[in-house]
Design a protein around this nucleic acid. Structure first.
Lengths: 149, 149
DNA sequence: GATGTTGAGTTGCATTATGCAACATGGCGA
DNA sequence: TCGCCATGTTGCATAATGCAACTCAACATC
C-alpha cells in the first residue's frame, strides 16, 4: 500500500466517497422532508448512544460547536430533544430525543431503511454486512482525527 | 433481505452512511480549504468523465439544477472551468477543468489521497478494493433513481 | 471562602449550499 | 414556419457552517 502517492485504488475510493457524501445527503433530504438530514443524523446519534453530549456530536461529525449548538437548539425548540443534566458532570447536558423525536426518527428510519434496502437489492447478505463493517471501520478511524489543539 | 422492515444490518448500514456523509465532507473542507468540497466534487467529476454536462452533475448528485448552475458559474468566474459547446448537440455545453482547475484538483487529490490512505492504514489491499467496489455499486444503484417526472 | 482557570455552550456576523419557481433561449420536429 | 422542449439562469428564501468573542457554572488552589 505504500505506493506513496498515486495509488489509483485509493483515489478511486476517494471518488466514491465524495459522490456518496453529496448524493446520500441530498437523497435523504428528499426522502423525509419532515426531518432534515442534519436533524436525522443528530437524533439517530442521540438514540444510538442513549444520550449524547453536544461535544460528542461535534467530535463525531467534525463540525464547529456553534453549528451543533444551533442545530440542537432548533431541535429543542421543535420539541424533538430533551436536555438533561449529566449525573456526574453538571456542566454537561445530555441530549435525548423526546417521544416526538423518537417518533419522527422512527418514521425517517423506516424510509431510509427501505431506501437502502432497495439500493442494495440483489446484494448478498454478506456483501451488505461487509460494506457496513468496512464503513464502520473507516468511520471509526476517522474519529481519531488529530484534534487541532 | 426481505425481512420487510427492521433488518438491523441495513439500519446499521444507514447509520454508517449518514455519519460518513456528514463527516467526510467536513473533513475535506478542512483538508483543502483552497478548494471547497463542492468545487472539488465538480472538478473531479469533470476530469473523470473528460467533460461533463451540467445536467450530468445534477443527475449524479441528485441536487437542483439551479445549485449546479451557480456552482459551475462560480468555478467559471474563478477561472477553474472552461465551457465548450458539445459537438453533437449545440444546446449543451461541456464543462472541463481549466489548467488552473486541474492544478488545484491535483493538489486536493494529493491531500485526499493521503488522508484516505492514512485512514485505511492497516487494511489489506483487498479490503480497500472491496470497499471501493461496494461503494461504486451502491453509487451506481443510486443513479437509477426514480426521476420525479 | 475568594479567585483565577477551564470546559461547555451561545450568540453575532458573514458566507456558502441548496431548493423552488419563473424566466430566457437556442434547437428540433410537425 | 411555429410552437414545444431541453438547458440553463436568476430572484428569492432558508438552512448549514465557520470564526471569534462572550457567558457561566464547576473546579482547583490557596
Amino acid at each position: 500500500m505504500q505506493v506513496a502517492d498515486g495509488d489509483p485504488e485509493i483515489l478511486g475510493l476517494v471518488r466514491e466517497l465524495v459522490t456518496l457524501s453529496r448524493r446520500f445527503r441530498a437523497n435523504a433530504e428528499r426522502l423525509h422532508p419532515d426531518l432534515s438530514f442534519v436533524d436525522y443524523s443528530l437524533l439517530s446519534e442521540m438514540a444510538e448512544r442513549n444520550g449524547a453530549r453536544a461535544a460528542d456530536l461535534v467530535g463525531l461529525y467534525g463540525i464547529n460547536k456553534s453549528t451543533i449548538s444551533r442545530q440542537v437548539a432548533a431541535l429543542h425548540r421543535a420539541g424533538l430533544v430533551v436536555r438533561a443534566a449529566a449525573p456526574d458532570n453538571r456542566r454537561v447536558q445530555l441530549l435525548h430525543p423526546s417521544d416526538r423525536g423518537r417518533e419522527l426518527l422512527a418514521r425517517a428510519d423506516a424510509l431510509m431503511h427501505r431506501e437502502v434496502d432497495t439500493r442494495t437489492d440483489g446484494w448478498s447478505p454478506d456483501e451488505v454486512r461487509t460494506l457496513r463493517s468496512l464503513l464502520a471501520r473507516y468511520n471509526t478511524a476517522s474519529s481519531a482525527l488529530p484534534e487541532e489543539s
